[in-house]
């Protein structure tokens, strides 16, 4: 009946559109976060040079790089979906997506994949940029990729929720500043949680971002503060939870289909 139409083309088109959107402002979407991460690296690596990393044979600078990369992944995945959705919602052009014959899952998938792609670009550029100064070997590439996908996917879905719920750009900024930033800073980017006092170490173990970052670091060094299985399960749990909430919102038309 509808064979004249390709069902994947709608999804592909939305994905391509979302990619073009961040590529067209690549200075803001890739270059800027890379520069930010490199600044952190220079400052902290200088200030804390010589600190032990609590991992054998890993210098503090080497320890720092994966955490900074993951922090950029988290922030950029969130930023991509949330700003894209909020903008098209406020501009009103989201109606063209909402009226199109696209399913909830296709819309979700296209936004999340585009965000993952932007995050991946940031990762690749960061690794390339730090390569001459910080030598890193990727011991467990599969774990690394899995953690990247789960972490990026979770934050991309969270960004969609933010974009759906926000009624002002301020709301998104508040979410970034009061949730995403603190959680990523307090998650062992700059230190191993083993170096924390016992109470704070326990608290960190309830921060999902800790597992996202720790699991990612495991991908590089083959060791982490938590067992990799825990990190993978935390990542998977977060991703499933957040995407279920997001997909349910899209399905019911919450705030988008008045």
């Amino acid at each position: 009946m509808a064979e004249a139409y390709s069902d994947v083309r709608g999804f592909r088109t939305l994905l391509a559109k979302e990619i073009r959107r961040f590529v067209s402002v690549i200075g803001q979407t890739v270059t800027a976060p890379v520069v930010t991460a490199l600044l952190y690296l220079v400052v902290f690596a200088q200030a804390l040079r010589g600190q032990p990393s609590s991992y054998p044979d890993v210098s503090y600078t080497q320890f720092l790089v994966p955490g900074l990369i993951m922090m950029s992944v988290l922030q950029n995945a969130f930023a991509n979906t949330s700003s894209s959705l909020t903008q098209s919602k406020f501009m009103g052009n989201l109606v063209f997506v909402l009226m199109a014959p696209l399913s909830t899952l296709e819309i979700f998938g296209a936004y999340v994949l585009a965000a993952l792609l932007r995050a991946a670009l940031v990762v690749v550029v960061l690794i390339a940029a730090t390569w001459p100064f910080v030598h890193l070997v990727i011991e467990r590439p599969l774990a690394l990729i899995a953690m990247f996908l789960l972490a990026g996917g979770t934050l991309a879905a969270l960004g969609m929720i933010g974009g759906i719920v926000a009624t002002k750009f301020d709301h998104l900024a508040a979410f970034q500043n009061f949730v995403v930033m603190p959680l990523s800073f307090l998650s062992g980017v700059f230190y191993s949680i083993h170096s924390l006092p016992p109470f704070w170490e326990q608290v960190s173990r309830f921060n999902p971002f800790f597992y996202l970052i720790d699991g990612f670091r495991y991908g590089f060094f083959g060791v982490g503060d938590a067992p990799i299985l825990h990190s993978l399960l935390w990542g998977l749990g977060c991703f499933l939870l957040v995407s279920t909430v997001c997909i349910t919102m899209l399905k019911t038309g919450y705030k988008l289909r008045a």
């Binding site: 501009m91 063209f96 997506v97 199109a100």
Partner: peptide
């Protein structure tokens, strides 16, 4: 095919692109 009442547009794209993207949403290549 619906033309909404409010004037809405995607400032990121050119006229041609907008129409191609719109066609793509509907499975037209």
């Amino acid at each position: 095919g619906v033309v909404p009442q409010e004037l809405v547009f995607d400032p990121f794209f050119k006229v041609e692109d907008v129409l191609r993207i719109q066609a793509g949403y509907y499975g037209c290549g």
